[in-house]
Amino acid sequence: MLFYSFFKTLVGQAVTVELKNDLSVTGTLVSVDQFLNIKLDNIRVDNESENPHMMSVKNCFIRGSVVRYVHLPPAAIDTALLQDAARREIQPSTAAVRGA
């Protein structure tokens, strides 16, 4: 749930989603779901002259499973907060396992 919540805080930001077919799609993050499926608005495919396949698409749903990276705007991210959230996220599950 950590990254689902994290991406929800980035709605409205410009991100570049790099897919496992080497396409990169830049756009405004509109929504994200529990599978980390991503929806972008006002998209632009990098190197459009070589990749005209989505020319008529402005608004796009990207399946989470095909994402390799998401390039994020550093200014929109509080890294200290993120690290704290990551420590909290991982603690309960491991504690539960140890207690078993």
Binding site: L19, N21, V25, I43, M54, M55, S56, V57, K58, N59, C60, F61, I62, R63, S65, V66
Partner: peptide, 14 residues
Amino acid sequence: DSIATVGLVDPEKD
């Protein structure tokens, strides 16, 4: 499983 993206087509642009 075999879908990468689903894009909304702008009919005029298309």
